[in-house]
Design a protein around this nucleic acid. Structure first.
Length: 425
RNA sequence: GGAGAGGUGGCUGAGUGGACGAAAGCACCCGACUUGAAAUCGGGCGAGCCCACGGGCUCCAAGGGUUCGAAUCCCUUCCUCUCCGCCA
């Protein structure tokens, strides 16, 4: 949610910034609604004030033992007018709020122009792409050699876009998770949290998945609906929902391993092969809650924390600044980390690190008390994958494969796999 | 799943129809006392919104209802706690 004050006083400027990401704000309609709301609110409050005064007078008269009847007659028709005014005000407030909830965040000034991923800007590269004297296999082929990556079993148990990992592959998956959690908790100062994988609609609204993107989510249970989380960002960021935190607890840094569930509506035919795009995947997520002036420093820091995982694993990657048109709904600025996949001969997203500024905080009413003013101010929230486990497993397999189909274990991972040098040792 | 008790400000907790946005205590902030601190004393101290800057409105889990008037009465939902049952 954007700042309602800005939306009131600075609408055209906001509309211009939102156009950068391809969102057209209907400023005329918004202005009209806002003006109607303002007028209705003033009218309603005047009526309420009148009602309160008369009710107080009745109370006093009664206490003094006076006759109340004439006062009651006076106030009689007020109730009806007030009821109608309240109803109209409430209706327009709901409409305005719904409108506000569907406006995406404004891109930061440093975000490059552009409409889609082709306009993203590469910021830096790390690592050397491995060379092979044969056509490198992709992870599906590598998995097929051992039958330990089983898409048919996934489809049998659930549907397409699910996988079953067994044996060494399941262990590799666990080792990657463990490595990341250890790194972020021991080296980067994050507190590990364990959270619900099902959340209520309010939580989904807090981070921006609802009301606009329900079709991307899996919904569970008919009455009192719950949704499977598409990312740990949702429950973890919402930890500060409806909180006013003291300045000295900031910054909050959380790391959280969860499965993520995505309906992948609208991605038919995309990445149908392999583990790149599944309905369920695991991820280690980083979340920071900071004071506003610290958030862009925190974005660089958080991104470097995610990069560190790839560096430890020796996986070549590049950092990309998303253009305005390619960013997610809640983000003001996003860096994607893209890992090199020899099987595809291209870089693929493995992490997305975003500063949401106060956008989510306003939806969540997450504030901190600024000691300088004594007033509550919205916090800034950031999140980033540190990293997506499934895609990381794919990257390890493809980058560390050898001609005979065996896969070496990156040095940093060996302690987590019993010291094995090859995955199948 | 059955029975009962509850949800009030950052926390504890009083309030069961009329001046209550809400006693008291804790915490916190300012001041006095003190070399400093503690203790003590005095004062302050929720959030959001509207405004003719005088004020006004809303919020006591959420949503409805009764009433001139609701934290207080009624209904629904959610949540917490205790006991029983069940279960990992």
């Amino acid at each position: 949610m954007l700042d309602p004050k800005e939306l009131r006083n600075n609408r055209e400027a906001l509309a211009g910034q939102l156009r950068r990401r391809g969102f057209e704000l209907d400023t005329a309609r918004y202005g009209e609604l806002e003006e109607r709301r303002r007028q209705l609110q003033m009218d309603t409050q005047a009526l309420q004030n009148e009602r309160n005064r008369q009710s107080r007078a009745i109370g006093q008269a009664k206490a003094a033992g006076e006759d109340i009847e004439p006062l009651l007659a006076e106030v009689a028709q007020l109730g009806e007018r007030l009821g109608a005014a309240n109803k109209a005000l409430h209706a327009i407030q709901v409409e305005l709020h719904r409108l506000q909830l569907e406006i995406p965040n404004v891109p930061h000034a440093s975000v490059p122009d552009g409409a889609d991923e082709t306009d993203n800007i590469e910021i830096r590269r790390w690592g050397d792409q491995p060379t092979f004297d044969y056509a490198p296999r992709d992870h599906v082929e590598l998995g097929a050699l051992s039958r330990e990556m089983d898409f048919e079993a996934g489809a049998k148990l659930a549907t397409a876009r699910f996988v079953v990992l067994r044996g060494r592959f399941a262990q590799l998956h666990r080792a990657l998770t463990q490595l990341m959690l250890d790194l972020h908790t021991q080296e980067h100062g994050y507190e590990e949290v364990h959270v619900p994988y099902l959340v209520n609609p309010q939580t989904m609204q807090g981070t921006g998945q609802l009301p606009k993107f329900e079709e991307d989510l899996f919904r569970v249970a008919a009455e009192n609906p719950l949704f499977l989380i598409p990312t740990a960002e949702v429950p973890v960021t919402n930890l500060v929902r409806e909180c006013i935190v003291e300045a000295d607890v900031l910054p909050l840094r959380f790391v959280c391993h969860t499965p993520c569930f995505r309906s992948e509506a609208g991605s038919y035919g995309k990445d149908t092969r392999g583990m790149i795009r599944l309905h369920q995947f695991d991820k280690v997520e980083l979340v920071q809650v900071v004071r506003s002036e610290a958030s862009y420093g925190a974005l660089e820091e958080l991104t470097s924390h995610a990069e560190k995982v790839l560096q430890l694993l020796g996986l070549p990657y590049r950092v990309v600044a998303l253009c305005a048109g390619d960013m997610g709904f809640a983000a003001a600025k996003t860096y994607d980390l893209e890992v090199w996949l020899p099987g595809q001969q291209r870089y693929r997203e493995i992490s997305s690190c975003s500063n949401c500024e106060a956008f989510q905080a306003r939806r969540m009413q997450a504030r901190w008390r600024n000691p300088e003013t004594g007033r509550p101010e919205p916090v800034h929230t950031l999140n980033g994958s540190g990293l997506a486990i499934g895609r990381c497993l794919v990257a390890v397999l493809e980058n560390y494969q050898e001609a005979d189909g065996r896969v070496r274990v990156p040095a940093a991972l060996q302690p987590y796999l019993g010291g094995r040098v090859y995955l199948d040792d």
